[in-house]
Amino acid sequence: MRYALFLGCTVPARARNYELSTRRVAEAFGIGVVDLEDFGCCGFPIKSVNRETTLLMAARTLAIAGSSGLNICTVCSACTGVLTEVSRELEHEDERAKVNEKLKSIGKEYKGGVKVKHILRILYEDIGLDRIKNSVKKDISGLRVAPHYGCHYLKPSEIYDHFDDPEDPKTLDELISAISATPVDYENKKQCCGGGILAMDERIALTMAGEKIDHISKESADCMTLICPFCAVMYDDNQKGISLQAGKEYNLPVLYYTQLIGLAMGMDPKRDLGLQFNKVKTKELLSKIGIE
């Protein structure tokens, strides 16, 4: 099982903990991830400015993977959304021909057929819950974990073949249970992190993120787990700012699922999972599962 690892913009610059833990976990399950150095931005950030620019940037990405004969493993949910959407659009030959006409000027051609999958979906579908259960080496059953699905991992559901239910998602909950932690339900679980408008209106974005931290804190969860670097920017990087804006003290550790499963697989919290890079400190959480 081999995939081209598409990192996008946020992960290699701001979420090295996510990147590191993804690589280690993939490796442990025998998922080969290949780095293609031509990769850049997926195109998502400027879809609002010009749809065609985004289409061409995504097509360029698909072309790079295609010429290496690889499908794409994504880690950012927004990248997953735009690349999946465009990969489906470009399965129509006439659409692909139009795009290729434009891509000529940068020396690229997309021949079609590249599939895009988020790392969590790869773990859920390709590796499967049984193998994941069998990979557990460390007991983390004492942990109460609040799943945050975010938006683009699930929606629009039509481009994801309805592999999970956007109104009642379960894949992340099941993956938490599979590593023997307890998934925690909470009010307004599907709420968006607000990351999409952080640059436009910080107050609204931080209020959105703060509401979720409130709801999770009420359920006395030990941590939140998520699967998108921009959601982490909102809940982890900005947790201090949210505290300041709301005048409340928050201390909710935010772990990528790949960090959480890595802990359950007995990996080194720092060397393999980069927990030292998490903004909200995880010392208390780790001591709860016997890691000092």
Partner: peptide, 16 residues
């Protein structure tokens, strides 16, 4: 690696 050329090419091509 920073891959500016092709992406700036797309940005120019679409007039941004």
């Amino acid at each position: 690696q920073m891959q500016r050329e092709e992406i700036s090419g797309i940005i120019k091509l679409t007039g941004l």
